[in-house]
Computed example of a mutant assay.
Amino acid sequence: MYQFITNKRKITLQERIEIVSYCLKQQRNYQLIAKAYQVSYQQVCQWVKKLEANSEEALRDKRGGTKAEIELTPDKKIEVRNEMIKRLKPNRI
């Protein structure tokens, strides 16, 4: 019977690198690594594929990455601010 790990802890970039390195040393025993580090089998597979295809930087979590306010032009800052105001205001008829 399969046992699914539902631990939703945040795994740092350094931990991902450590997990992938250990996995490669263990001849890609994904199941052993997943149990040892309490992460899913699929996630370990994905991290190994990403590392092999690119570099350690590929293991970085890029979700929710927005541009820093400094990178925006003054016009773009105004546009973003106006969009936020529109979302906050309820639609009036």
Rank of each mutant, 00 (worst) to 15 (best):
K25M: 11
F4K: 11
K10T: 11
E57R: 07
S21G: 11
S21V: 03
D75E: 11
A58S: 05
L51F: 07
G64S: 04
E56T: 04
Q31N: 13
Q43C: 09
K35Q: 01
E56H: 05
Y22G: 08
K86E: 03
D61Q: 04
I5Q: 13
K67M: 02
K49G: 07
K49F: 06
R9L: 08
A68R: 14
R28L: 08
I19L: 05
L88W: 11
E15D: 02
Q3L: 15
L24M: 15
I70P: 05
K76I: 09
E83L: 15
R92M: 04
I5M: 12
G65L: 15
E52R: 03
I33Y: 03
F4R: 10
Q46P: 01
T12A: 01
F4G: 10
R87G: 08
V48Q: 03
Q14W: 00
Q38C: 05
E69K: 07
E71K: 02
L24V: 15
S21I: 05
V44K: 00
E79S: 06
Q46E: 07
N54R: 06
Y37I: 05
I70E: 15
D75H: 06
T66R: 15
R81N: 07
Q27H: 14
G64H: 02
G64D: 05
K62F: 14
M84K: 15
L51T: 05
Q31P: 05
L51N: 09
E52D: 07
